[in-house]
Design a protein around this nucleic acid. Structure first.
Ligand SMILES: [Mn+2]
Ligand SMILES: [Mn+2]
Ligand SMILES: [Zn+2]
Ligand SMILES: [Zn+2]
Lengths: 137, 137
DNA sequence: CCTTGCCTTAGATCCTGTCCAATGTAGGGT
DNA sequence: ACCCTACATTGGACAGGATCTAAGGCAAGG
């Protein structure tokens, strides 16, 4: 994230207290918060911030490529500020917790053109599913 | 699917008209229906079948390993009877349509033990995302 | 056939996420 | 420094997907 706010301001992003707080909450590595978790932490600093604004801000950060949106089966999506370093995820099937894992190969190149069915393939997501140590105990 | 019903009956599954119809609807390859699509098609043959029963039956088929549950980002999950032949999916980011793709490598073996974080890793899912020919036009 | 424990049902309810119309404000222009 | 206004925020309504509940139905073993 580092100078996220600077980068966004240059692109004409209006800088509000709400957006600043959301960006602060998302700062760090190995952060995978749900929108409601982001809202809860943001509300500690700015009690009147609304859920709608958190959703709006997250949607824009995702759209601008600053935050990664991680689907977790039926549960709430998680937001990952570590969008610059491509990586994959290890997901606990029981509690939904997430860990980062780093790829050894490039699965995109593993998709032969013959299997593209005319799709314009943009990205690939690899999700390892299992049971985390906490849930196993 | 072939002798799905026989297999399930042996495991003590009570055989009802509703379950039979759901299994019939799911028969075939490259089938990726949502729960509501399954319900609509089942209702053509058995008009009084309820959504709850379709959900219950799908959940059990998934739990027994007879059907694969495929998450598609924010959309309704899709149910895939082709659970015996492991494969991955190519998902249209615009309309949510799905195609089967077959892996060239085994991403599970690409996960070094050093990155398991104590998880018991059960499976890996690879999702290619892009734009399908219909949506591109 | 009976019985009983499993199934099915309609509708309520939950969860995540989006939409809306009213109100507030960042920041460029003067 | 102050105004304007286009853009942002807000609370609450809304929507889709999925689960839960309590009442009644029925498969299948005896
Ligand atoms: Mn991550
Ligand atoms: Mn499939
Ligand atoms: Zn867990
Ligand atoms: Zn499409």
């Amino acid at each position: 994230m580092s100078d996220l706010l600077g980068r966004l301001r240059e692109r004409g992003w209006r800088l509000t207290a709400q957006r600043r707080v959301v960006a602060e909450v998302l700062d760090g590595d190995h952060v995978h918060l749900t929108a409601d978790e982001v809202h809860a932490r943001a509300a500690e600093r700015l009690p009147e911030i609304s859920r709608a604004t958190v959703y709006n801000t997250l949607r824009e950060l995702v759209h601008r490529g600053e935050v990664l949106e991680v689907s977790t089966d039926g549960r709430a999506k998680r937001y990952d500020p570590n969008a610059r370093h491509p990586h994959h995820h290890l997901l606990c099937a029981r509690c939904g917790s997430i860990r980062d894992v780093h790829p050894t190969g490039d699965p995109l190149s593993d998709l032969p053109a013959s299997q593209s069915f005319g799709f314009t393939v943009l990205e690939v997501e690899v999700t390892y599913r299992g049971i985390c140590p906490d849930c196993a105990a």
